[in-house]
Amino acid sequence: MTPVAVMVGANRIVPAAGIIHPLGSADLSPDDEKALRRRIVEQALQALRTEVAGPTVFTRE
């Protein structure tokens, strides 16, 4: 849903793991799922410390 986030003017946007479980995935083992969640949250923190001039999508490094 990142295009919607861009359209409404959200400034720091991190693509997550999907609509039905943005911060997880039932297909992964519990450890891998938590690692995925941690990666997304850390990327959100990285976005927070980045200066942006307008809607910016932070794609996975």
Partner: peptide, 21 residues
């Protein structure tokens, strides 16, 4: 379909990871 976030609310609100951070 909220099945998966009801199974584990962290899939929606990452309290576990945020606490660790």
């Amino acid at each position: 379909d909220t099945t998966w976030v009801k199974q584990d609310p962290h899939r929606l609100v990452p309290v576990d990871v945020a606490r660790e951070l």
